[in-house]
């Protein structure tokens, strides 16, 4: 029998595989958007919505910050939120100029 994981902050192999599968599937969606030359606010919202979820998964699961002190999750997720929000504002500004 496997001894209990002394460092439970790291996800289990099955959980990591699930996260990887989602990340790859979401990347295929973004690639399809590019292949079809799809554009417009709805497409960009979908693409960056997926990028936001992917980034959150990297931060919480792969970087293993899920069980880190709240401050570190706020700093990293705050970075992701600010960058995505600024891109959305810039895209909107470009549409209206």
């Amino acid at each position: 029998m496997m001894p209990p994981d002394p460092r439970p902050i790291h996800a289990t192999p099955a959980r990591a595989l699930g996260v990887w599968t989602f990340l790859i599937a979401a990347t295929l969606v973004t690639w399809l958007v590019g292949e079809r030359g799809a554009h417009g606010p709805a497409v960009v919202a979908l693409m960056f919505g997926l990028a936001y979820i992917k980034g959150s998964l990297i931060i919480l699961e792969f970087m293993a910050l899920r069980r880190a002190p709240l401050m570190w999750r706020m700093l990293t997720l705050g970075w992701l939120t600010s960058v995505c929000a600024a891109i959305a504002i810039a895209y909107w500004k470009g549409m209206n100029s």
């Binding site: 994981d5 790291h10 990591a16 595989l17 690639w31 590019g34 292949e35 792969f62």
Partner: peptide, 28 residues
């Protein structure tokens, strides 16, 4: 070249997944 960009995304994600598995292996 969006194909190259997408393949590179898959490569980096897979590489990160392997690093997670390496970290888990060390923890075990």
């Amino acid at each position: 070249d969006r194909d190259a960009g997408a393949i590179n995304t898959v490569l980096l994600l897979t590489s990160s997944f392997f690093v997670v598995r390496a970290t888990q292996a060390v923890a075990a």
